[in-house]
Amino acid sequence: MAKYLLLKHYRGAPAAVNDVPMEKWTPEEISAHVQYMQDFATRLEGTGEFVDGQALAPEGTWVRSDGEGRPPVTDGPFAETKDLIAGWMVIDVDSHERAVELAGELSAAPGASGKPIHEWLELRPFLTAPPTITE
């Protein structure tokens, strides 16, 4: 089994096929979209492939150390930041092919007019622990 992160971007990903911003959908279309995501997660729990799923607020803060004894420096949010993560799902699957298949399904969540969004999702494999037997 291998774990994969499915990353959904607010922006930074190439344009989706059905590229209408969510605030221009009808409330029913938003509900249908949310329901699709929940059903997807529930189904993956049923197949024993679900690990985690979270959504992130669009606005964040940059933080860095400003040296010992001083409070950290904060900045942002930066409007010009190109890439913005909207949320993620972590899956644990038997193969890369299966991960691609599931990401494809998730990308087809319904959007405006109830049509699939066909948005780009980023699929990133987890680094694992080293195997015991290597030679």
Binding site: K3, G46, T47, G48, E49, F50, D52
Partner: peptide, 15 residues
């Protein structure tokens, strides 16, 4: 041991 939620593993076993 496999770093997945218990519910996920329970489903994997019952399947």
């Amino acid at each position: 041991a496999y770093l997945v939620p218990e519910a996920t593993m329970a489903q994997r076993i019952s399947r």
